[in-house]
Design a protein around this nucleic acid. Structure first.
Lengths: 183, 183
DNA sequence: ACTTATTACTCAAGAACTTGAGTATTCATA
DNA sequence: TATGAATACTCAAGTTCTTGAGTAATAAGT
């Protein structure tokens, strides 16, 4: 009960291959649940064997054949069941935060460099998520879109990701400022 | 390389027993890295066997004897090494976010109930972190404290946690609003 | 013709984490 | 004086995730 449901939820947006999902889980939907491609492929196979998704081969022009998947009825039912029972608490796991916690006992220069790198990542992820949100809104105003659309789930989830990246950016900048002021 | 360094970093604040860390990792420092008590105990034993921390028994009045740990020189060195090499990307893993992503395909009432619960949790965690921050500042102004103190690491890390909880709260309230407006 | 990059996916070993059950001590409360 | 709650910790089994090394097909540059 883990990546499994994230994959199932991602497939609500339409059929996708392991490769496509692998990229999404490293990027856009990485806000949702991050995973290595290998694990995504493994989960797809497990889900298919359990009858929760169904795959079909799609030959492509100029590329290897891929296998794309859609949830089955059982898959939708499983997702509904999952959504209804109690959620595990969110997992916060970030090496950088641990390093900052130990800031007073470790090399500041390297820490600052890593905070700068993270700040840059957060800035670009925030920008990417802005584009994703814009594409989802498809011209409409946010309030209007959220009132009327039938696909608010991905929008709300991306909003959360966007907020998170914005926050991370602010925090990194503040931490850099503090650490630099100490010499 | 995981909970290991979070435990090591947590021990910078002074000696602690597995039980004490277990509580911290479920609550205050849970922002830093969450873990079950069993895993914390296991890590403490591994760290001790590796010579990165040293434990001693502390008999207590009216309670079972506990074992408290402090980092050794090797432990400090390991933490420095860890802080210097490249961080893994942060892990985002939250069942509730997956459920919201699937909002359009699952029962809204249960989702709203779970969002309310999470909102309440975030509100109380934010309040708790405010107290922790206040205690760390110990009367000083934030700017003053961050400029002068020798223990900014935990402060910066708790700040991040505080921001995260605040954000989570806002997001939950917004998501509830949107989902309720759809009936 | 050769290398490199991208797409597309698999296998296997091991590390990290969760779950569930259990031990033992002391204090409070009924 | 039994019962429950909190402290303090262990063991074992299982799941989940990471790491590293592959295979194979096509395209694009050198």
């Amino acid at each position: 009960m883990a990546l499994r449901h994230a994959v199932l939820a991602a497939l609500l947006d339409g059929e996708a291959s392991g490769y496509e999902l692998g990229k999404r889980f490293d990027r856009g939907v990485g806000e949702l649940w991050n995973a290595r491609p290998q694990q995504v492929y493994a989960e797809l196979n497990t889900l298919e064997r359990s009858g929760l998704i169904r795959g079909r081969e799609v030959p492509q022009q100029g590329r290897p054949t891929k296998r794309v998947f859609v949830p089955t009825e059982a898959g939708y039912a499983e997702l509904a069941r999952f959504a209804a029972d109690s959620a595990r608490p969110a997992a916060h796991r970030d090496d950088l935060l641990v390093k900052v916690y130990a800031a007073d006992a470790v090399d500041a220069a390297s820490l600052i460099a890593q905070l700068r790198e993270r700040a840059a990542q957060s800035r670009s992820r925030a920008a990417m998520l802005d584009k994703v949100l814009e594409r989802l809104r498809d011209g409409a105003e946010e309030t209007e879109f959220l009132g009327g659309s039938s696909r608010v789930g991905p929008y709300l989830a991306c909003m959360r990701g966007r907020m998170f990246e914005q926050d991370t950016l602010h925090w990194c900048l503040r931490a850099i400022e503090v650490l630099e002021a100490r010499g």
